[in-house]
């Protein structure tokens, strides 16, 4: 397997073997039909995404979302290939005391609003994002409503 070649229709097995070969820090946790699940450390996410976009031809960032696990937060990326319908799920864990992730908007323009949404709802800062402003919630909000520490009225 040549890790630097460009694959237009990489299969699940190819992705599962290429990604850890190219980046030692990437761990493929699970594979299914047309699905690859992997975890990536925070420092490598931009390089991994660039590689997935350029060499594995994943042209589309379906979504990007945050999850608050209280002891840490996660950013989950869903990336899709338009030639064979394969999807990659990348999970990046972010420590609560340093909520910073590199933005992937420069790779996929479609991730722009998803990153803004994740920032305003969870407070995860995406470095080098072109316009990290509140989108859905009012601009006057100074809290992050989707965190577990934010309780809905009557939910206790």
């Amino acid at each position: 397997m040549d890790a630097d070649a460009v694959y237009q229709t990489p299969t699940v097995e190819e992705i599962a073997s290429i990604l850890p070969a190219k980046f030692a820090s990437v761990k493929v946790t699970k594979t299914e039909t047309r699905r690859v699940y992997a975890t990536v450390p925070r420092e490598d996410i931009f390089a991994v995404c660039t590689y997935i976009h350029d060499n594995l031809t994943f042209e589309h960032c379906t979504t990007l979302l945050g999850v608050d696990y209280v002891d840490h937060m996660s950013v989950v990326y869903h990336l899709s290939n338009y030639y064979n319908g394969v999807m990659i799920e990348l999970v990046v864990d972010v420590p609560v005391d340093d909520l910073h992730v590199e933005s992937v908007t420069s790779i996929w323009e479609g991730a722009n609003w998803h990153e803004r949404e994740t920032w305003e709802l969870f407070g995860i800062v995406f470095d080098n994002h072109p316009k990290l402003e509140r989108l859905l919630t009012p601009k006057t909000y100074e809290f992050f409503p989707f965190r577990k520490s934010y309780k809905l009225r009557g939910s206790e």
Partner: peptide, 9 residues
Amino acid sequence: ETAANIGLT
């Protein structure tokens, strides 16, 4: 390419 990159579906 633009349509794919900008996330049009």
